Simulated scan of single mutants.
Amino acid sequence: MSGEQQGSPDGGASALLAVYDDALPAVYGYLLRRCADQRVAEDLTSETFLAAMDTVRRDRAARPTTPWLIGVARHKLADHWRRMQRTPDPVEEVPERGDDEWDAHLDRMVAHHTLATLSPTHRAVLTLRYVDDLPVGDCAALLERTVGATEALLTRAKRAFRAAYPDTDTRSGPTGSRRGGHA
């Protein structure tokens, strides 16, 4: 194979290096917000840039940009979720952060914790649909399902999330602790 076919430091690889400093925090942030585990986000960020390097070496016309790299990261995250479906491991607790804007922070923690209790499939479809704001058809393509199956999965995932989400009345103190009652 000639050097031109394999790519060269002056081709796509140098273009990737040129956007690396700007793209790295964007890609890592994208992944961290969606998986809530720093180690997984770091691993997926590495996988993203390795896959991007492979692509630019194979395809000299590829010109990496931050949005393109986030697209690669989205695929790496979907691959991760599929692996989790096949080999489920217990999800660790959501790491605690500072207590600025405590109510919003608490709600985010509860939502992350609730997502972590769901199956990887439910977690994946809810994140793709409501965090990434993807249309159902795109969610279906990433999860390798039909649109109808994905809509049914979304319905089941939302029901599971609602069932797993702690009753907000119990967090408000003793006045909201009546089981089944409404304030």
Score class of each variant (00 low, 15 high):
Met84Thr: 07
Met84Cys: 15
Val40Ser: 06
Gly11Glu: 09
Leu126Val: 02
Ala124Trp: 00
Leu16Ala: 06
Asp37Tyr: 01
Leu32Pro: 01
Pro67Lys: 07
Lys76Phe: 00
Leu16Pro: 07
Pro25Ile: 04
Tyr30Thr: 01
Ala15Glu: 13
Tyr20Pro: 01
Arg97Lys: 10
Thr121Phe: 04
Met1Asp: 09
Arg129Phe: 03
Glu101Thr: 07
His105Tyr: 11
Gly12Met: 08
Met84Glu: 15
Asp133Val: 11
Ala163Cys: 00
Asp43Ile: 02
Glu144Tyr: 04
Leu118Asp: 08
Ala140Met: 10
Leu31Ile: 02
Arg178Thr: 12
Phe49Ile: 05
His113Pro: 04
Gln5Ser: 14
Leu16Phe: 05
Gln38Lys: 09
Met84Asp: 13
Ile70Arg: 15
Ala61Gln: 11
Thr146Phe: 01
Thr155Phe: 11
Asp21Lys: 10
Asp37Ile: 00
Asp167Met: 04
Arg178Cys: 09
Glu144Asp: 13
Ala140Val: 09
Thr168Tyr: 03
Asp22Arg: 13
Asp169Ala: 15
Thr65Met: 03
Gly137Arg: 14
Arg178Lys: 09
Leu69Gly: 08
Ala163Ser: 08
Thr55Ser: 13
Thr66Lys: 12
Ala26Glu: 15
His113Gln: 15
Gly3His: 10
Asp103Ile: 12
Gly3Gln: 11
Leu44Thr: 02
Gly29Cys: 05
Thr146Ala: 06
Gly176His: 08
Ala15Tyr: 00
Ile70Glu: 14
Thr45Gln: 03
His105Met: 13
Leu17His: 10
Arg63His: 11
Thr155Lys: 10
Ala18His: 14
Lys76Gly: 00
Leu32Val: 04
Arg123Ala: 10
Ala149Cys: 01
